[in-house]
Write a protein that binds this DNA or RNA. Structure first.
Lengths: 189, 189
DNA sequence: GAAATTTCTTAATCATGATTAATTTTTAGG
DNA sequence: CCTAAAAATTAATCATGATTAAGAAATTTC
């Protein structure tokens, strides 16, 4: 049983103790060094990771070999490759620590069993997915209506601490820009 | 009880009959005329609609008053404004029929009760949300790696029937392009 | 602390797709 | 069927942000 995850869950639902007990029947606590991988292209993703500490990134290599960051995994959030996980296909992505991390590793097989048994835990993940959907939708809306410069400044103002923690080229990649473009923005005035 | 929705649900989960009975305890069958609205800017969205027949669109007006289509609702799919629904804030969006439609209208309050009671129904929505997340992620990936022309041709090849059903300017809007740009592409060769 | 690698910057050029504006074609309503 | 409105087209111009190519600065490693 991990208090940090339990308190995260209890922000959204109120599961009976036996549901939590079931959830934690199959979990692994892992410490990762900077640059260590949890997933590499070609593998089948079979786990969902809850980030306790540190930061990870989910990224892919495009046709030109350029890294495209899809998501960051920050504390109290989940990271996995859903496409590989639910469609049971080899992943095209990488999950890598961007600093030293602590994560909880849950197998998808076990989580599916838990979700089928416990309405509360199922609702917990359903609620998170709904929140992610809204966040994604807002992100698309922003990207349609603001310039790259505005998007960058908006991201920095919303995540002042975060931008200190990862290299600038990763912010560029996450926002879908080239590192040169971010430099250009920062070079202004 | 509606057979079409039940068979959709049973593609993903196997709910006991009493869960389905509970689900259908509060539902309204609605027929919509072309251009009829289910939601308008400023309202609080309190319903989720399952599309039986026809086609609807979820869109917003940007700062310049231009329509931006966020999603289409096609048969056997759900449509709502999740942001307004879950955050209980006035919507900035419109849901409008693009042709004559039949929908099932479920109140969010009721659906939340059902999801809290029935692991199967909760899992049904959780599975749909996971699929949507994967689809959204793939869409972003495409948009980063293909030109507008490629995206348009790809969309047409994947949805040959659909593009016959809605005006071209709506396809443009959904893909995030101007109608002029789609015309330009089509005018080539 | 020097060397090597990684990260960031600068600047010129280029391509994609928006904008503007006018016109044509299609569809719908009376 | 005729008119009005809606939808699609065409073409010229423009802005954003990618690409390319150096080079500078910062970090890491030995």
């Amino acid at each position: 049983m991990n208090e940090q995850l339990i308190s995260h869950i209890k922000q959204f639902v109120s599961p009976p103790d036996e549901d939590l007990k079931l959830l934690f029947e199959d979990v692994e606590y892992k410490v990762l060094n900077n640059k260590e991988f949890l997933l590499k292209e070609g593998q089948f993703c079979k786990f969902q990771y809850f980030v306790l500490k540190g930061c990870l990134r989910l990224y892919r290599l495009n046709a030109k070999g350029i890294e495209q960051i899809i998501n960051f995994g920050i504390p109290n959030w989940w990271i996995t490759d859903l496409d590989s996980l639910i469609n049971k296909i080899p992943t095209q992505k990488y999950i890598q620590a961007t600093k030293q991390c602590e994560v909880l590793k849950f197998s998808r097989v076990h989580l599916e069993k838990v979700m089928e048994t416990s309405p509360a835990i199922c609702n917990y993940f359903r609620i998170l997915l709904e929140k992610v959907k809204v966040a994604d939708q807002r992100k698309v809306e922003y990207s349609l209506n603001f310039s790259g410069e505005e998007l960058y400044h908006h991201f920095c103002s919303k995540n002042p601490a975060f931008i200190q923690e990862v290299p600038q080229y990763m912010i560029a990649s996450y926002l879908g820009f080239t590192p040169e473009f971010i430099s250009k923005i920062r070079g202004k005035k």
